[in-house]
Design a protein around this nucleic acid. Structure first.
Lengths: 245, 245
DNA sequence: CGCAGCCTTGACCATTATCAACGCTGGTGG
DNA sequence: CCACCAGCGTTGATAATGGTCAAGGCTGCG
């Protein structure tokens, strides 16, 4: 089943706090109704694929043959330099699209972090569909613009924020990005490893680890386990994220 | 007159090498023909505005009342932290759009670098237009995806490249971004100051200056004036940009 | 129980930022 | 016409943030 999240105005793409009604998540970001006929036509073309951790969805440089929509789980999207340095450009969750750009080669790689599943469409099917479904195109345009805003926010982080500010921003923005995993307020789930956080934030593993320890020591967060933490002082975290401390 | 550049497949947005036929620039990135009726309807709604250096087009947080299309000159787009740290997220040139994101507030600021001009549309006019012009929507979606790819490349630069690699990448990608300013091959025009280069590359003015001096000393570039330089060893620049040296 | 993989912590180092001085250049006014 | 000034750029000395290298600890799985 294809899922479409409608982004609230002023939100920065995959950063929205809430999920999708029919995805089993919470209010305010509701499934957008393209009409049922089109939706079922769309789903008829979809190939459902289960994902195990580490599964490759897209490899940079491969022919751009498919478009994906994440149904569940989490995915890392990244670019590499020739010597292996990696920049993770985003984490994707249920409802997110992947591989929409034109161009005959993918410009990035994408791999599953957790087990989950995706809908896959062949590019020609996708193109045909979009030509006959202006509503879908409008949704995608809207989403693309929100992703662009999120990308700009990430550039600000990478270009101008300190290590603490980066980690604080990350922890502040992470709650609620996964509509499939509703958590109690202040609770954050980290499906990714420290290495992935580091490659997303433009830091090293060691720096991420040190900053988390420091945030814990200062009572801003509580580490419940490696992949689960609690925000003890949200105001303080917010201030740190915006460089106001 | 509104200008629309068609992006070549596989190109990363505003990085394309060539301009627009009717913009007075070179081949391969040609003006896309949405039909004449729509184009003139579009132009009828446009307000033409002349720009002087430093003129503010958009201020972060202001109501998002307009959409812009650059006719000529260059524009810097940036985000600020509360203490004044600035990240320039992009430079825009003739043909580029500005302010397309939905949301009732702008999430970034934009100012003219050089004198030039823009077409300005009121948001409701733009929305109405797009509803009745699927071709335009398709173009914008395509452009948005290319900008997204460019944004990912910039994240790789900001998160993982060294100072030299950043400057080399910048100099490699800059030729040809301005369709209104065709230059001899290997010649690069820098409309922006060192401070703007620094804020785009996530560096300081001093580091940019030092790196340029070093590239000059090593014979990779020649500085013709503060705003004009020549790439003496393009292969070497390319290698530096991709971190292969 | 033991091992592998991930995480944390510590000591040290390097890249780049910061602070400061000086130089160039273009515009203005004496 | 020349001198001065403001703004921008360069260069140098020093400092600090975050990276690198290394050792040890935890945890979950076989």
């Amino acid at each position: 089943m294809l899922k479409l999240k409608k982004l609230p105005d002023g939100c920065t793409g995959r950063r929205q706090r809430n999920g999708c009604d029919t995805c089993g998540a919470r209010a305010f970001s509701v499934c957008l109704s393209i009409d049922d006929a089109n939706l079922s036509r769309l789903n008829a073309l979809a190939e459902r694929i289960a994902l195990a951790p580490g599964d490759v969805l897209i490899r940079e440089g491969d022919p751009a043959s498919h478009v994906f929509n994440i149904s569940g789980g989490s995915v890392r999207v990244y670019r590499l330099l020739s010597d292996g340095r990696r920049q993770i450009t985003g984490f994707l969750f249920a409802g997110d699209f992947l591989g929409l750009a034109t161009g005959d080669r993918y410009a990035f790689s994408a791999e599953a972090i957790e087990s989950g599943s995706v809908c896959r469409f062949r590019k020609p099917d996708y193109r045909a569909l979009i030509l006959t479904t202006p509503a879908l195109e409008a949704i995608l345009l809207d989403r693309a613009h929100h992703e662009l805003a999120a990308a700009q926010a990430q550039m600000l982080l990478l270009g101008r924020k300190t290590a603490i500010e980066r980690v604080a921003t990350f922890l502040r923005d992470l709650p609620g990005v996964d509509p499939m995993r509703p958590l109690p307020a202040g609770r954050v789930h980290l499906p990714m490893t420290r290495a992935e956080m580091a490659d997303y934030l433009g830091l090293t593993i060691e720096t991420v680890s040190r900053v988390l320890t420091r945030l814990k020591t200062e009572g801003v967060i509580r580490l419940l386990s490696l992949n689960q933490l609690e925000i003890a002082r949200p105001k303080r975290l917010e201030a740190l994220a915006d460089g106001e401390a």
